[in-house]
Amino acid sequence: MFRGALIIAGLAVILHIGVILISLERVKAKPPLAMPDTTGRVVSQEASSLLKHYGCGGCHYIPGIAGANGKVGPGLEQFANRAYIAGHLPNTPENLVHWLMNPQRLEPGTAMPTMNLTSTEAKLIAGFLYGYDNDAR
């Protein structure tokens, strides 16, 4: 009986301490400014929040962005290695930025809508996409 009661008391105390420790952990686990994704790549928080805001992931698969698993348009992995944007524009940074800002002007009737990105935003996203080139994959 003594052993049983001691075990119960011990378990209750451990449970209490456990709950407190877990809450401490949760509080400590603040998201850092940049965090490595599943592939080990460091994703800038700024680019990642832009991609989430504009909804790129609704249509494109983008490794490193949570929930970006769209199947409507092409996947954007290893984008720097692509020869063309939209099938006919050479994949240069200038073309990519223009494409991001106004796809309908470069390729009228393409499914990708013009989302009124500013040039700063487009440059951030372009930089993010070209970053895949550094991947070891």
């Binding site: 805001h53 909804g55 609704g58 769209g70 409507v72 393409t110 809508p113 013009t114």
Partner: peptide, 30 residues
């Protein structure tokens, strides 16, 4: 968020964003 990109994705592929919902993914030209 209600932005053009999300809206476009929702219209053409609502079933990937929220599988099983009653809105069919739409077949539309670009």
């Amino acid at each position: 968020p209600n932005t053009t990109g999300h809206l476009a994705a929702w219209i053409v592929d609502s079933q990937s964003i929220k599988p099983g919902n009653r809105m069919p993914s739409q077949k539309l030209s670009g």
